[in-house]
């Protein structure tokens, strides 16, 4: 009997604009991301990737339509236990150590003291932060900060993980380690929603992508299928083909 794949994220008839002068950004927008997927959102600057990420995480509210995570409406407080968010900016307290940051964010994610202790030990070990666990994050390199940023996002073992350019500004080794760790999380059942400008990284990590521009999805599907359909050799040429070569602000 074939396994039924459940939708992890279901966006239906969503409309959103920042203000009246900004023009319609998202209009009757629909998207479904399934459980266990490694889904990539790509597009040039101003395409609406970050806005869509904010809508999916409940940071901003749509004017119409809905966002559901595992059939729970995003405005429902309980839905917030379902996902983790790793923003592009370092979303942590730089004066605190990794342990102190993880303890605080773990508590806010609803974990008990004991659960936090267990998770901290696991994450510091996996992400190679054990030696610096008590040092202030402000003394860390960019790559180390990225790893702490990621650890905070997954401390409560969310079912969905939203990642906004999680590897920006890190060296090859750190990027490789982060991508490998994300694959491990996905194999363990976590759904990943990922945005980046690193298209080669996307080819390595994502099994399905959406290319978007001006608040609309231009194309969506498995990478190999998309390349074949559009007769392109790689993601970069497909990207330029669909979004154009003009500068974006």
């Amino acid at each position: 009997m074939a396994e039924i794949i459940k939708p992890a994220i279901h966006i239906s008839n969503l409309s959103f604009q920042y203000n009246e002068n900004s023009g319609v950004y998202f209009n009757d927008f629909n998207l479904t991301i399934f459980e266990g997927e490694r889904f990539g959102l790509f597009g040039p600057n101003g395409a609406g990737k970050s806005t869509l990420m904010s809508l999916m995480t409940g940071l901003i509210k749509p004017q119409t339509g809905s966002v559901d995570l595992f059939n729970q409406h995003i405005t429902n407080k309980q839905s917030r236990t379902l996902f983790g968010y790793v923003p592009q900016d370092f979303s942590l307290y730089e004066e605190l150590s990794p342990i102190e940051n993880l303890t605080f964010f773990g508590a806010w994610a609803g974990l008990s003291k004991k659960e936090i202790q267990v998770r901290i030990h696991e994450l510091l070990e996996i992400l190679g932060l054990m030696d610096v666990k008590n040092k202030a994050v402000k003394t860390f390199s960019g790559g180390m900060k990225r790893r702490v940023n990621l650890a905070i996002g997954v401390i409560h073992k969310p079912k969905i993980l939203f990642l906004d350019e999680p590897t920006v500004g890190v060296d090859i080794q750190t990027r490789h380690a982060i991508i490998e760790y994300l694959k491990q999380l996905n194999e363990a059942g976590m759904t990943l929603v990922y945005t980046s400008h690193q298209l080669t990284e996307a080819e390595d990590l994502c099994n399905r992508i959406a290319l978007m521009d001006h608040g609309k999805i231009l194309t969506c599907g498995e990478i190999a299928t998309l390349l074949q359909t559009h007769n392109e050799e790689n993601l970069e040429s497909l990207f330029l083909h669909l979004t154009g070569k003009e500068y974006r602000n």
Partner: peptide, 17 residues
């Protein structure tokens, strides 16, 4: 204004805490 606030807003705890 910091990134940490963005993350706090996505967590299931009220900012009043």
């Amino acid at each position: 204004r910091s990134g940490s606030f963005v993350r706090l807003k996505t967590l299931p705890t009220n900012y009043l805490v």
